[in-house]
Design a protein around this nucleic acid. Structure first.
Lengths: 184, 184, 184, 184
DNA sequence: TATGAATGAGCCTTCATTCAT
DNA sequence: CATGAATGAAGGCTCATTCAT
């Protein structure tokens, strides 16, 4: 049952979709064979489309990063929106974060991290100009906060994630805000 | 070279020591066979002493929690000491954190978490009474911060951990302190 | 980028050239997909032109045999020239030898062997007539020597081949010559 | 159906025996899974006993080398006996040769080669002292001849090996002998 | 009770070969 | 006739877990 050449793009999509689910359920380390199986695709096709786990993850997560970048381009977007977006993504699947840290020495994963950093920097400047965040806060600080938030969610049960996210974000808000009492 | 029935307690100790090293080097998911090998003990004995991975990890990490509890009992200990202790432990081995989150539904892991919580609560009260930490901060908030710090360190290269720990702790300090400007 | 039906001959040539390189680098067992890739040709086209590995190898090695036959037709060529030529070929790529022995029961490979034999026989007669090689030496003897030399080179690191070839040839020279002391 | 610990030595023997057969039939590159299957042993046990292909091959071939060394210790043994022995071994299985050349950079394979060399050197001296082999012949020359002979046999059908071996040995005899005419 | 070996399931990866377009 | 993707069968290897001694 060779579905022929035209099945290519369809398979690719199916693999990404399957990987998104499998990663969400089993984490970044989930078996690739499960991805192929769920996509209804031969093991070989998976490897043709994505020569390794990272290549597959990259395809899965590219959408997420793109969402973040879209947010940066909204002139009214502020840091809290960014945290919203990241929380939401992490609530859905924490594998991205897992991947970025597990594969932190792979240049492709680094690039993903750099794209996130760029978004953070852009939004941070605006918030500092508007006096919402202390001038002493750096992009690195925020990335740290973002990472911690995501790690935390990645280790939290799905149904508890919204509450935990809210709680963690309040801590960071108070850590970064110019007048913490206001946000308390 | 069957050392006979009297070797029991000695084996147990050797297994715990070996597991501490193996977990530190290879993470919580490291092969159990490596533990038995390093301990110089048969596979079967490992399973007899510790029926599963969690039982072994529990024994390993009991010491760490004990250290934390000792700290709680020092009347002059404050929250920053607790963070110091936890940072140091996480800098040494991140497997504990990994275990607590990976196995978060195992009652034994939960109990470990509860013991940490108790320490946190005790120290927090003192810091709040002394006016060093805002009254609005809860034990849950601090546990969250602790978790995030530990997760973060668990995903950081060993040599970068001290610097990252310091940076993260400043954020939390500012998020919790009564007068953040002082600690900035 | 389907170059259409006229690309046939060009593809064929590209495949042979690619196969020559791939076999030289990876041996006779190298993946056929590598050949197609290097030739810039689809897998399907490879199979159309060469239904199996042997068909491809035959096309590749036909040139080598042709060189040998050209040598036979030079009236002054002697056995040592033949060994020179074969050594050079084996030094460049041992895949031919590998193929001839691996596929020794395939009639196409046998034919290749027969062509070599014919060359050997022709040159041998001349050398014997000239009194350079003992009359008792048969074509089979020389083929054996040739095979052994080629096998040997096929199992020698590339950079050591010239020296090993020289050493081996001296042995055969002494084994075949009418007056071995001369060549010693 | 865990046959328990005592099955260890038996398994080991079964694995070596199976490997000897599998290597003889399929060459040194034959699948290890076939070895485990034929030995009636789990895949894991194979890897426990022999962590890699070379370790297994070493065990298989140790007997062969031992036979060679026994021959060296016979005071009346001469080069022709050595060739006899090697021919016989290669006639039975050519995988040893394949291994020595395929894995020529593995120190364990090198050691095997060195043991053969040592035997060759010892026997050569005796033959030269007795005036049966030219003084100009070196141990390296003989090793070359031995290698070529073995390679040749490794690529010859089983039933043709005796005849081919005889023919090749005559060439070497004439190449090495003090008075080649005698042996012609 | 300790021991160390056995077992087999499961994942990863590579290719040869087939096929719809 | 070219193309490039699909497919699945092997084979390699690693563990978690069980068991006879």
């Amino acid at each position: 049952m060779n579905r022929g050449r035209s099945a290519g793009p369809e398979n690719r999509r199916a693999l990404i979709a399957a990987a998104r689910e499998v990663f969400a359920e089993g984490g970044f380390a989930a078996p690739l064979s499960a991805v192929a199986r769920r996509a209804g695709v031969g093991q070989g096709s998976l490897y043709r489309h994505f020569p390794d786990r990272i290549a597959l993850a990259l395809a899965v997560f590219d959408d997420n990063i793109t969402d973040l970048e879209a947010l940066r381009d909204r002139p009214d977007a502020r840091m809290s929106d960014l945290f919203d977006e990241i929380s939401e993504q992490a609530i859905a699947s924490t594998a991205l974060i897992d991947m970025i840290s597990t594969e932190r020495h792979d240049p492709r994963a680094e690039e993903l991290g750099a794209r996130v950093s760029a978004v953070v920097d852009a939004v941070l400047v605006r918030d500092q100009d508007a006096g919402r965040i202390r001038a002493s806060v750096t992009g690195g600080d925020v990335m740290l906060a973002v990472s911690m938030l995501a790690f935390l969610l990645s280790r939290t049960d799905h149904d508890e994630r919204p509450a935990i996210a809210e709680r963690a974000r309040r801590i960071f808000r108070e850590g970064f805000a110019t007048d913490p009492d206001v946000s308390a």
